[in-house]
Simulated assay, not measured.
Amino acid sequence: MKTNNWQQIRHQLHQYPELSGKEQSTAEFIRLQLESLQPDRLYTRIGGHGIAACFDSQKPGPTVLFRAELDALPIEELNCFAHRSVHSGISHKCGHDGHMTILLALAAYITTNLPDFGNAIVLFQPAEETGEGARAVVADPIFKQLNPDYCFALHNLPSHPMGLVMIREGSFNCASRGLTIKLTGKTAHAAYPETGISPANAVAELIQTLPSIADKLSQEELVMLTLIHCKLGEPAFGTSPGQAELLATLRSESDSAMRDLIESVTRQCNTVAQQHQLSVEFQWADIFAASHNDAECTKRIENAAFRCGQPVERLNEPFRWSEDFGAISATTNGAMFALGAGEMTPQIHNPDYDFPDELIATGQQLFADIYRQLLHES
C-alpha cells in the first residue's frame, strides 16, 4: 500500500460508492489494501460485507477495535470535481470514505509500530446508514472471535471548527427508529360514508396526541416523536377512505427510554384504533441503538486530543442524530467522538458535501494515540 497518498485512496473510495448491504466492491478494495499490510488475521464477510484485520502481539493484553463504515447514501452528487461519484444517485455524503481512509492509515501505522501486548483490530462495517450493519456484525460468530475489550469510532461533523474533538461520557447520540402505523377500516361510497369505517378521525386524533406522549414521558432526558408523513385513502372523490398510514420517527437518549416510548405509543394507537373500530398494524425501520460512551474510553480520547494538539469540547447533551456504533459499544467498553469538519463545509447528507481531506491525518493521529495508550509500553 502506498501510504503517502491517503487523499488518492479517499478519492477512489468516494468515486465508487455503494449502498448499504451492497458494498462488495468497496469491501474488496479494503481487503486488498489490508492484505498488503500482512495482518496476522484477516476476516471477511462479517455481518454481510464487513471486513476486519487483526494485528496480534502474541502476548497477553487487551483487544482494541477501531471501526469505520463501508456504505454510501442514495443521494445524487452535485459536485463537479474529478473524484465525483460515477454511480448515478449514489454518493458518499456522510464521509464514510474519509472514515475508511483514516482506518487504513491507522492500520499502516500499526504495521510499523506493532503492539507490545494484546491485539489491535480495524473493522470496516457494512450498512451503517440503515442501522442494520452493526447489529449484523455483532450477531456474526466471527465477532465472538474478535472479542474486543475496547472499541472506538469517530464521525466527522460539519459546522464545527476543523479538528475540534467533541466528546461526552454516557449518552453520546440517540437511539432512533422509524414507525409506520397502518390503520384499516372499510371503504364506502362518498355519498354513503356511514356504510363504511373511515380512519380519518383516528388519524386526526393520533396526529394531535402522539407528539405529546414523548413530551410527557421523561423530564430527565431527551425523548422525541416527530411526525413525518400521513396518507389517508386515495385521491378518489367518489370514495370514503378505509385505510390510512401515519409515519413517525422516535428518538431518545437511552435504549430504556426508547422501550418506554414504544410501549406508550403503541398502547395509544391500539386504544384509538379500538375506539374507532379499526385494525392497526405497526412496522419498524431504520432501528438504531443509543451510543453510550464509557468513562475510561472517553478520557483516553480526551488525552489523545491533548497530545495531538487538537481542541476538545465536552458536550452538555448528546447529539440528536443516530449512529449504529451503539450496537458494538454495548458489547464492551467503548466510546465515539465527533471530529469537526469545518464551519463552512456543507452538512452531511447534503448533495454538495465532501469529506475534507485534511481530517485524514487528524483522525489517524487520534486513533494512533489511543492505540499507543492501550497496547504500547509507556
Rank of each mutant, 00 (worst) to 15 (best):
Q373K: 04
N303H: 13
E76W: 09
G334C: 02
S176T: 14
E28I: 10
I30N: 09
I328M: 08
N79G: 08
S25Q: 15
R10T: 10
L278M: 03
R300K: 13
A257R: 05
N350E: 14
A190C: 11
H376D: 01
L114E: 13
Q274P: 00
M1H: 14
A139R: 06
L78R: 13
I360Q: 02
P351F: 09
A368G: 01
H276E: 09
E169S: 15
T111K: 06
G98H: 06
S88W: 06
F29W: 10
Y109V: 01
L261H: 00
R177C: 14
H99G: 11
H160L: 08
R84P: 00
T44Q: 09
T44W: 03
A257Q: 13
Q283Y: 11
K2F: 07
A248E: 02
A134T: 04
L19A: 04
T184Q: 13
Y109R: 05
Y150C: 04
C54D: 08
E317V: 10
N4S: 15
L227H: 14
S212P: 01
D260I: 10
S159L: 14
F325T: 02
H14E: 07
T209S: 15
L179M: 03
A327M: 04
G118V: 02
A107G: 04
S218R: 05
A191C: 12
D56Q: 05
R320S: 12
L103A: 13
L154W: 08
K231G: 12
S291A: 15
G95V: 09
T112G: 06
Q38R: 13
V312P: 00
N201Q: 15
H99T: 04
A290K: 07
Q277P: 00
V203A: 05
L123G: 00
C151Y: 01
Q274E: 13
E169C: 09
I110E: 02
A191F: 07
C230W: 05
P318R: 08
S176P: 04
G131A: 12
F325M: 01
D255R: 02
V138S: 03
L374A: 06
G61Q: 03
L103E: 13
T298A: 05
D140I: 06
T112C: 02
G238V: 03
I348H: 08
T331F: 01
A368H: 03
E28M: 13
T130S: 13
H99E: 12
H14W: 00
S329P: 01
A305D: 04
A341W: 10
E343L: 08
A236R: 07
G118D: 03
Q243H: 12
L246H: 03
G363H: 05
T239N: 12
L73E: 05
L146Q: 06
L146M: 05
